[in-house]
Amino acid sequence: MIYAIMYGLTVGAILYLISVGFSLTFGTMRVINFAHTLTYTIGAYLLVASLRQVGIPFLWGGVVGVGVAALVGYCIERFVIRRLYGESLDYTFIATFAVFLIGVDIIKWIWGVYPKPISDPIGRAAEFFGFVFPVYRILVIVLAILVFFGLEFFIRKTMVGKIIVAALDNKEGVRCLGIGVEKYFTIAFVLGSALAALGGVLYAPITAVHPYMGSHILLLCFAVVLTGGLGNLRGTFLASFFLGMLISITGRFWPAGSEIVAFIAMALVLLLRPIEA
């Protein structure tokens, strides 16, 4: 049971890193970005390529993965999403889903379809009260919590963060105060992409890296963001760990149903607190 909780926290940490950007971009830009988890996949693949093909250490492989994914995120925002501001949500669905499919196919073309497992970069375990935990997983959880506080600081205390929050409340109001919101949307978008890639990099040694890893996690990401509240960053944090825990604990007793419960939880939350659009 303790191990299930530990695993739940790890999954929660990863879910948080991936979902927070999704929530942020939906909240500010009203864009449902299906390509969001593409940057997660790209982050993981570039890490694998860095380790296996270039042979640089994990840390640098992670930096490469996050950096390139941020760049890809920038291009997606600049050349696809930006053209869709103010259009109906259907267009953003179709366009970003197309980007996602193209991205996955490019990944398959370069790296093939077979899963690429990589090993735990730390490989050591720590013992607490007789339970043995891999240090790497503890690190992942700590990192997610650090990202949470870093993001809270960025959003609440910096001018860029405040402008993003203001645009979440009232985009037109910000524009009418002479502030071109697009620049800030780009920042939010790139930040979200980078964090998703960080999630991919950190999750790679725990799961297997394969071309469809993004579509699988996207659904969970939806569940997290809808449970936590669209554009609500604290809610996203709590929902990530809650769902991660739920998935892990259910998986212990009912493996087949482990992810279904995440969607049941989402449905319940939506029933109790419908989205105010």
Binding site: K162, I163, D169, N170, L177
Partner: peptide
Amino acid sequence: KVFGSLTVRENIEI
């Protein structure tokens, strides 16, 4: 519509 999640001072700051 004010920027409801920001403080009044922050609204003025924006």
